[in-house]
Design a binder for these strands. Structure first.
Lengths: 107, 107
DNA sequence: TCGCTTCTTGGCTATACTACCAAATAGCCA
DNA sequence: TGGCTATTTGGTAGTATAGCCAAGAAGCGA
């Protein structure tokens, strides 16, 4: 793997890593329905506000969400709705795993 | 977020986490072209064989690859080629980020 | 200006991940 | 069987991540 290839895979991994957490996936799922402010997300995630804020900053840093400050509140929205297909792919893998396990159990 | 939802997002995160590493993305990329044995992958990744083996076991555990032992060698292949669309989505985000940075720089 | 609210940042601890080396396992062939 | 090769597993050290609390920053309204 040469240096350029390495960089390419590092870049991909950085984005995927940003999605690799249940709370962040939940946030993405909620934002798929429209923009939300941090306190709304906090309720859903059920963690400390500071924790949610850090999750959001990770997603923002990866370019997955963008923020928009209006008055006291900061609204977040998906920057790239294509992340949703993404989740679809994952669900396929989960389905496939479930079938696989079922097939093994049936023996 | 209720318990059932939590489990669903945990399951998704587990799969995504398995992909969230440059070496593992590289492996997926290579396997997209066909099955490979561990030592072939090791060459590409450029890490210790034991390290590659552990990466493979993470991918296998997530249901992304499957293995097939033939003689002394163990061949790995993608179990769910849909992970490739997945990578496509990531590339979209990277593109969007690049354009965004360019737009900011142009100001 | 002062206090209140919303959000972010810094500090800390516990947990998880990664990579290497060394040792174990498994299959082949002499 | 004994040695050789391919791979996995165990151990360990360094690094990164996640969560909470406390403190800071910014906007609003009295």
């Amino acid at each position: 793997m040469d240096a350029k290839t390495q960089l390419q895979f590092d870049a991909r991994a950085k984005i995927i890593k940003a999605l690799a957490h249940p709370s962040r996936l939940f946030i993405v799922d909620v934002l798929a329905k429209g923009e939300r402010c941090v306190c709304e997300l906090r309720e859903g995630v059920g963690a400390d506000m500071s924790t949610v804020s850090k999750h959001l900053s990770i997603l923002k840093n990866a370019g997955i969400v963008e923020d928009d400050k209006r008055g006291l509140q900061v609204f977040y929205r998906l920057r790239c709705p294509c992340v949703l297909n993404f989740i679809g792919c994952i669900e396929n893998v989960i389905q496939a795993n479930a079938q696989h396990h079922k097939a093994l159990a049936a023996r």
